[in-house]
Design a binder for these strands. Structure first.
Lengths: 138, 138
DNA sequence: TTATCCGTAACATTGATTGTTACATTAAAC
DNA sequence: GTTTAATGTAACAATCAATGTTACGGATAA
């Protein structure tokens, strides 16, 4: 979605247009974007000729910020089981795995931090300038 | 589960005992372990006095191997949406994100590769030797 | 004043995971 | 040999999150 907004160069893009690109319902788009609006990554303008746009230049937003804004609760990923606290393994395994998963997640986030929306948008265009028609987004 | 097997030092551990540690049903344990058996990380012995045990010394198995053995299909994580191929963004975004997510996953896997089952099992025991009672697993 | 568009609630649908029961198969122990 | 205690797996219900859909109130440009 944010790649699409970057592609549209700051225009106010209605949810229906983004939905056509992702092939889903406009409400789904608005729902997903609402958390990005709370995180100040996206702006919304109500009313006629309104729509969504990036809150900042595409260079200023990394995929890590998007990831964090859309993650509901990182702690909840591990909490799908409740070990027996009376078992010597169960009593300690949660804390041990939590630390390991934290580092693993940090490794992944480091990679996401290296990529900006502008980097993604740049890859949308063909490398050869002659092959860059003015395409009308659906 | 594998930390528990390491904790039991090579003994044949029935699924019911592991289930008590994780507070779930023995069938769930057997189901999860079946993929680890296919990946040759765990051995199973049928019949009376049977059970599960690590296929190799705990030092020889990393959390990355466990992660890969339990992942159903890594490609399937991204395929939860089907972009409109007639949209210039939708047509290219999948490939772009795939490459980025591949690197992000590699960053995470690098951290998992650094940890062995033996590392986890070691942390189960208190650091101070005087505080190491012979506890009977539930 | 009207035509758009966002924000959000409500609800159904879908799909994956989990829990449970059941039973065939296997192997140790007596 | 028979018994006992395991795994392996199918079948099914229950649960939960994500998704799709309809509806409607509020906001805003033209």
């Amino acid at each position: 979605m944010l790649a699409y907004l970057a592609f549209r160069k700051g225009a106010a893009v209605p949810s229906g247009e983004i939905a056509a690109s992702v092939a889903t319902n406009p409400v789904v788009i608005r729902r997903l974007l609402s958390s990005l609006i709370k995180a100040r990554l996206v702006k919304a303008q109500k009313g006629a000729k309104g729509g969504f746009s990036l809150a900042s230049a595409p260079e200023n937003t990394s995929l890590l910020e998007i990831y964090r804004a859309t993650q509901s609760n990182p702690e909840h990923s591990l909490n799908r089981f409740t070990p027996n606290q009376r078992c010597p393994v169960g009593a300690k395994i949660e804390g041990i795995l939590h630390e390991i998963f934290f580092k693993a997640q940090a490794g992944m986030e480091a990679e996401l931090a290296r990529v900006s929306i502008a980097d993604v948008e740049r890859q949308l265009h063909p490398l050869c300038p002659s092959k860059r028609p003015k395409m009308i987004p659906v």
